[in-house]
Design a protein around this nucleic acid. Structure first.
Lengths: 116, 116
DNA sequence: ATATATATATAGAACATCGATATATGAGAG
DNA sequence: CTCTCATATATCGATGTTCTATATATATAT
């Protein structure tokens, strides 16, 4: 099942950083991996991914290096920096807060299990 | 805790329809109710809400009527139509799919609990 | 030789939210 | 009585995120 693209907004960076926390990856691989893990809920487009990766690099969240695949092809691998790890932690916390809040509204209930 | 606004994208319509499923409400009330239930995670802005309500009305998802408050003040109440109820069901299903998919990626795991 | 999958890149369009601003009324303070 | 603040609705331009379309290049399969 595909979901409306606007739902994806904001979660894309979180997902990419999470992938890179596990191991270095190249762009095309991230697209495939996200689709695989989500049963095709996430079909991130190349036109979205590459500019985002460049931006994360400029912000010092990831590093890039080139490496040759078995078949001679040169790929651009990305690795998470410590700063990127910090952003990942922030984004994970945000996601938990956000998804809890949505579920709370959907349950139709007032606040509970929280600060008061 | 506030979350990045881009996370909200796509979920706003779901949340509004959900509120209206429970009872008719006016715009200002929806803003306050969402903030209350989410412990201020959702602080929907008037500049976002009113155009969205007008759009939902044009699409036949909600009906509008004016009603006087105890204090003479005239408010615009919104009620969910059957078409709107259909959209709400769709959006709720989308949300479940989406949030499950994110959590699956965050768990770092391959797919399970799904179609294969 | 040609088509298809892999791999990266950029520009312009579409869409959702926000901030700023405007208007009007009711309630409370001084 | 007047001034301010909370309530209540509305619109516009700016911003940010994703998409589609397009481009390029190499490896693989037909």
């Amino acid at each position: 099942m595909k979901v409306d693209k606007s739902l994806l907004a904001g979660s894309t960076t979180l997902l990419l950083l999470k992938l890179l926390e596990e191991k270095d990856m190249y762009g095309y691989q991230m697209i495939e991996e996200l689709a695989r893990r989500s049963n095709d809920t996430f079909t991130l487009k190349a036109g979205t991914l590459y500019p985002l990766l460049h931006q994360l690099e400029q912000q010092g969240m990831v590093n890039v290096y080139e490496a040759q695949a078995e078949n001679q092809r040169v790929r651009k691998y990305y690795s998470l920096t410590s700063k990127g790890r910090g952003l990942l932690n922030e984004k994970e916390a945000e996601w938990k807060t956000f998804s809890s809040a949505v579920n709370q509204v959907l349950r139709g209930g007032a606040s509970y299990g929280t600060a008061f």
